[in-house]
Every structure is written in structure tokens, then in C-alpha cells.
């Protein structure tokens, strides 16, 4: 169960529900996923994030909620497909390339916040290998 994943549509709906059920009068604006058409999102994080939406929505000092998804790593690596379409609308030749983008870190969205509660594990939690009880394990980090 720990590694189950949530459908993109359900993820968005859960965020909308979390805001609406907590504070129906407060507007929720979601951005950063405009180009994501299909995806499965970590279920464990989905629950925590929905709770974060609830927590922010229930804050008396909050009038509306911004929900922003941006790359965790400020270098994103993309595949580029340059595809030629033939007369009948069918692809006939494609060149596949790669391009990296450098993007700002999350700080640009946080400059006006007096309080920032960072609940992300350090990236090293996903990669540092520890030897425990004679076995090599990778910390899951969920």
C-alpha cells in the first residue's frame, strides 16, 4: 500500500476538496501542472499535501490559496521530439533530442511569506545509502 499512486485527476480533486471542505469561501488557484496530461502521483505525499491545503485554508489570516507545483530540482531534463507529419496526418519521420532547462528554485514564490514550513526531506534522503544490520538499504523517503 505504501507505494500506491494517485491519478492526476484525483490528486487535483483532492486538493479542491480539501480547500472547499475547510473554507468554501476561499478561492484556490492551482498552477504548474498545465502541461501535465496524465500522471500518477505519490499517494503518501498526496495525503500530506491535501492536509497542507486544509491547514492553510483554515488559517484565519488566509483569504485565498495559491497551489503551485514547480520542479524540485532547478535543472529539468527533457526529451524533444521533432516530428514530421505526412499527407495523411501520420507521422513519417521524427528526430529525438534532449534539452536541459535551468529554472529558479522555489524561493521566488516564497519571498512574501513571513513563515515558511518546509516539510520536504533533503534530497540526500533518496540517495544516501546506509548500512544497517549488515544489509545495504536505500532510505525510501516515501
Amino acid at each position: 500500500m505504501k507505494l500506491m499512486h494517485t491519478k492526476l485527476t484525483e490528486f487535483v480533486q483532492r486538493m479542491v476538496d480539501a480547500a472547499r471542505l475547510s473554507a468554501p469561501e476561499k478561492k484556490l488557484n492551482i498552477s504548474g501542472m498545465e502541461n501535465v496530461r496524465t500522471a500518477k502521483l505519490q499517494s503518501l505525499r498526496t495525503g500530506r499535501i491535501a492536509n497542507a491545503v486544509k491547514e492553510i485554508a483554515e488559517d484565519d489570516d488566509v483569504e485565498s490559496i495559491e497551489f503551485i507545483i514547480c520542479p524540485r530540482c532547478p535543472e529539468t531534463m527533457h526529451t524533444v521530439i521533432v516530428k514530421g507529419i505526412g499527407k495523411e496526418g501520420k507521422g513519417n519521420k521524427a528526430i529525438v533530442e534532449t534539452v536541459d532547462m535551468l529554472v529558479p528554485t522555489e524561493d521566488i514564490y516564497l519571498v512574501d511569506c513571513e513563515q515558511v514550513v518546509d516539510r520536504r526531506p533533503m534530497m540526500s534522503v533518496y540517495t544516501d545509502v546506509e548500512v544497517k544490520d549488515g544489509e545495504t538499504q536505500v532510505q525510501a523517503g516515501a
Partner: peptide, 17 residues
């Protein structure tokens, strides 16, 4: 390196590549 490809440091808007 925490960033996979570029030899770069990034904080907010600033990028030192």
C-alpha cells in the same frame, strides 16, 4: 553535484553556471 547535468549553483533567481 546535486544538479545532474550542469556544473551550476542555483538559489532563487541567481544561477552560477
Amino acid at each position: 553535484k546535486k544538479i545532474p547535468v550542469h556544473n551550476v549553483a542555483i538559489s532563487g533567481r541567481a544561477c552560477n553556471n
